Simulated assay, not measured.
Amino acid sequence: MYHAGSRTVQDRVGVRRNADHVGRSIGRDIKPVAAAFLGLQPMLVIGAAAPDSGRVWAGALTGTPGFVRATGTRQMSVTGRVPAADPLATALTTVGTPVGTLALDPRTRRRMRLNGRLRPTPGGFAVEADQVFANCPKYLQRRQSYETVGDRTPGTARRSGELSRAQAAFVADADTFFIATVHGDGADASHRGGNPGFVRVASPTELTWRDYPGNAMFLTLGNLAADPRAGLLFADWTTGTTLGLTGEARTEFGPGGERRVRFTVHEALETPHALPLRWSAPEYSPANPQPPG
């Protein structure tokens, strides 16, 4: 269930027993309640390593609810593809690609992760599940509703090797981002949230954030302990603009179990109006710590 990277972090923080208890919730089957949840979602976050470059990216697919669905007790099917120029395009059309997926519903503050191996299908792809589990709503902002903007067209993607001032401000103002990590022959996609300012831009090529206390499994930090490659995805929940970052991350451990992640940007990809969803304003999670001044 846990690989050596996760075990290393669990032991360092002293939560192995808690991790073993929580880890019992991880299975391979998509239970009926999880299948129903998937069928209601208009967005799916995906993380994987690009086969051509080896870089890890996090991305998102959207569609009418039902575009993501369980098509077996251990299979999830997705209708739709990312654009050909997307860094995940090859990964999502290659048989056997390890992928991590995250279905997150801001309306109910529920989320579930399904990690496994991908198989292309005529209309999209399917994922054979290796891990299926839910996460608690901690640090997840509530957004009461969304609308699909039918005439929204993605703009031209802009690539760069560092953050512009506008992109740095975008990151610093974020209350949510998604992180993709990998290990051995697996991948994972997860969520990080907090009040605006919880992610700090140390320089045009470096971000930092505090790793808040969570479920004790340390799947993300465990993956980073084994393989530092990571991908981040920031989204504007109003305009649909996305900012994808790929690079490497390392965890810095402080006294009392405090942890901070430092991410080095190797490439940035900003796509105006990439997502057709417009969400209502956030209600910040009561669990969010106040960012330091």
Rank of each mutant, 00 (worst) to 15 (best):
V99L: 12
G124Q: 01
R111V: 00
L118A: 02
L92H: 02
P106W: 08
T101A: 06
R107Y: 00
G100S: 08
L114P: 00
P98T: 13
T97P: 10
V99K: 02
V95H: 13
T108G: 04
T121L: 01
R113W: 07
A85Y: 13
R109S: 13
T101V: 05
D105A: 09
P106H: 03
A89E: 07
P120W: 08
L88T: 01
P122A: 02
P120A: 01
V99F: 10
L92I: 05
D105Q: 07
L102C: 04
L102N: 02
T97L: 05
L104Q: 10
T97E: 02
R109V: 14
T90I: 14
R119K: 14
A85D: 15
F125D: 01
T121E: 09
T97H: 03
T93Y: 07
P106C: 03
P106L: 02
T94F: 12
V95S: 14
L118D: 03
A103P: 05
V127F: 13
G116M: 04
R117P: 00
R110L: 13
P106Y: 08
A85H: 14
P122V: 02
T93A: 14
V95E: 15
R107P: 12
P87V: 11
D86R: 07
L114H: 11
A126V: 06
G96D: 04
P106N: 04
L104C: 08
P120N: 01
V95M: 12
P122G: 01
L114N: 00
A126I: 04
L102A: 03
G123Y: 09
L114G: 05
P98E: 07
T101E: 01
G100H: 06
G100L: 08
G124C: 04
N115R: 07
R119I: 09
P122E: 00
R110C: 10
P87K: 11
L88G: 03
G124F: 11
N115Q: 07
T97A: 02
P122C: 06
N115V: 08
G96E: 03
T93S: 15
T94L: 05
A91V: 02
T108P: 10
P106I: 09
T101I: 06
D86K: 08
T94A: 10
T101S: 10
L104G: 06
L88Y: 08
M112V: 01
T101K: 05
T93I: 03
P106V: 09
R111T: 11
A89H: 15
P120T: 03
M112W: 06
T97I: 06
V127L: 15
T94M: 02
T97D: 03
P87R: 10
A85L: 11
V127K: 10
G96L: 05
L88N: 01
P120K: 00
A85W: 14
